[in-house]
Amino acid sequence: MNKLIEIQHLCVGYENKPNVLKNVNLTVYDDDFLGIIGPNGGGKTTLVKAILGLIKPTEGTITFFEDGEKINSLNIGYLPQVNQIDKKFPITVFDVILSGLTPKGKIFKRYSSEDKQKVRYVAEQMGVEDLLSRSIGELSGGQLQRVLLGRAIADNPKLIILDEPNAYVDKRFETNFYRLLGDINKKMAIILVSHDIGTIISMVKNIACVNGDLHYHAGTEISPEWLQKAYDSCPIEILGHGSLPHRVLLQHNHERQSNPDSESDL
């Protein structure tokens, strides 16, 4: 099992909040399906931005690997939070998936017939082959999710990062979507970021809880004690319902006041 990413002593912050992440250590492997959980405002999206190179750490290192050797960068696919998508932008499903094949650092590219065939192949994988000529503004949340996931995997990345993907899901497609992720994980590593502990536990191989620092748990047989420690002052219970357990936050007082959109700022 080879390393893809090694994060050591990572600290990240912003001008108005200098200590969003403190002394984070994490290793992501080439066959990993890592779930990242944590309260809103705890720094999950900040960690993702640091991995993607969108924000510079104040301390620590992020090292990428391929076949056991250090490399300068890693091919990473990314499915952002739904509130970062402008559905009014005039672009078709075909062109959205095609944009996933644009080489990093290049604005323009002449696409080949092989590229266009790859788009159709990916669209078929995602179940959106009949939507290729539609504008993204005409899509349901679940359809848009599949299209953006298609864009994320079109270039055969080593890793895909999914930031709160359940925000897109229409319930009719939810089970199929998570089954699809299981198939994708046979070909590439996945990091799935979510505040929904139940979804994470039902899908992933390993868990990291981010709440300023990071608590790592190999495997998904986690105890309430570990969760309570990882979430600090947020006591949690897990209830199982079929294949998708759900998390319950018990009554508690918490100094950090946040809203459902606050994570996008961190």
Rank of each mutant, 00 (worst) to 15 (best):
L47M: 11
D183E: 14
T102H: 09
F89W: 07
G38E: 10
E138W: 08
I153W: 08
V204A: 05
E138S: 15
G77H: 07
A154Y: 05
I207Y: 05
D67I: 05
T58L: 14
G100E: 00
E225K: 13
G41I: 09
N2P: 03
I76P: 02
L250E: 05
Q145R: 06
N40L: 03
L139A: 00
L47D: 04
D183F: 14
S194E: 12
L162N: 05
D95M: 11
G240Q: 12
I222W: 12
N83L: 12
N166T: 13
G142D: 06
F89M: 09
I238V: 11
F64I: 11
E263Y: 10
D115V: 06
M126A: 11
Y14N: 08
G240F: 15
K118E: 15
L181G: 08
I51T: 01
F89C: 00
I85F: 01
I161G: 00
N176E: 15
V169W: 02
R247Q: 15
K109H: 13
H241W: 09
L180G: 03
Y111D: 00
I62R: 01
V20P: 05
K87V: 14
K158I: 01
Y216H: 03
G68N: 06
V147D: 08
A154L: 09
L26K: 01
M126N: 11
P245A: 02
